[in-house]
Simulated assay, not measured.
Amino acid sequence: MAKNRKNNRDKAKETNWQERVIQIRRVSKVVKGGKKLSFRAVVIIGNEKGQVGVGVGKAGDVIGAVRKGVADGKKQLVDVSITKSSSITHITKGVAGGARVIVRPAAPGTGVIAGGAVRTVLELAGLKNILAKQLGSNNPLNNARAAVDALEGLRTLSEVAQERDVPLEHLYA
C-alpha cells in the first residue's frame, strides 16, 4: 500500500513537466555497409515555475530520440528567478555557437514577444511578460541554448547585495 502511494507521488512529480519538440531531423552516418539512418530530436522541457532545460537525443526511431532528448533536458535544467509580474529582473544576453539572444523584462500584459525556439524556452520557464530578440544564427538548437544561457545569467537583487556585501536596502537607494 505504501509502495503504491510512493509510485503515485513519483507520477505526480513527472506530470508537472511539459516537453515540446522543436526539431526532428533525419541524420545519416556512413558506415562500411552503407548509410545508417537515425533521428535527432531537440526537446525543451520546463515546469512553468522557473525551471527549464534543452535536451538532444538520437535514436533509430523518433520516439526513442524524443525520450532521450527529454532525459537529457532534465539533466540540463537551470533555475530562473521570476518576478511578481511574471518577468525577469534585468536585461541579459546569451550566446551559444553562432546564435546570440537578448532578453528584456516587459510590463505586465505584454505577453511573450519572441520567436522560434526562444519563445518556447521562455514559455516553459514560466515567463509571461518578456521581450526577446534572436541575432545571428537561425539554428533552433543554438537559439534555445542561447536563451537558456541568457536566463542562467540572471541575478536577483538579494544575490547582488550578497556578492557586494551590502544590505539589500542600500541597493534601492
Rank of each mutant, 00 (worst) to 15 (best):
L151G: 04
N4G: 05
I24H: 04
P167Y: 04
A41M: 06
V166R: 15
N4W: 06
G64A: 11
D79L: 11
G69V: 02
S85L: 08
E14S: 15
K68L: 14
F39A: 01
N142K: 08
G60I: 14
R155G: 05
L154S: 09
V95C: 12
D61P: 03
L151F: 12
T83N: 07
K133C: 03
R100Y: 07
S158M: 11
L37D: 14
G116M: 09
T120M: 02
V52T: 03
M1Y: 12
L135P: 01
A173C: 09
K133Y: 03
K58G: 06
K58R: 14
K49N: 12
A114E: 01
A117W: 05
K133W: 08
N7L: 15
K49A: 15
A146W: 04
Q23W: 04
V118E: 03
N143C: 13
N143Y: 10
S87L: 02
K49G: 10
L141T: 10
R164E: 14
K35A: 15
G60F: 12
R104H: 12
D72N: 15
Q76R: 15
V43K: 04
L122A: 08
R145P: 03
N142C: 04
V121P: 03
A144C: 08
G69M: 06
A144F: 04
N16P: 00
T92K: 00
E159S: 09
G98V: 02
F39S: 03
D79M: 10
Q134D: 05
A107T: 04
V54E: 00
L124N: 03
Q18A: 07
V166E: 13
P108E: 10
N143R: 08
V52I: 08
Q23C: 13
R26M: 04
A71W: 11
A2G: 15
K49Y: 09
K29Y: 05
V112P: 04
S38D: 13
N138C: 01
G116T: 14
V118K: 02
N16Q: 13
Q134P: 08
E123I: 02
E48M: 12
Q18D: 07
R5G: 11
V160M: 07
V160L: 12
P108S: 09
L37P: 04
V43T: 01
Q23H: 14
I102V: 13
L168H: 11
R145C: 11
G126I: 00
I45A: 12
K29H: 09
V166W: 13
K11W: 08
K84T: 03
L151K: 07
V43G: 00
D79W: 08
I22W: 07
S38K: 14
E19L: 10
G126R: 00
V160K: 03
L154M: 13
G69N: 05
W17F: 15
A12W: 06
R5S: 14
G60C: 10
V27G: 08
L168A: 09
K49W: 07
D61G: 11
G153P: 00
Q76S: 15
W17R: 09
G69W: 01
G34D: 05
K68Q: 13
R155V: 09
T156K: 06
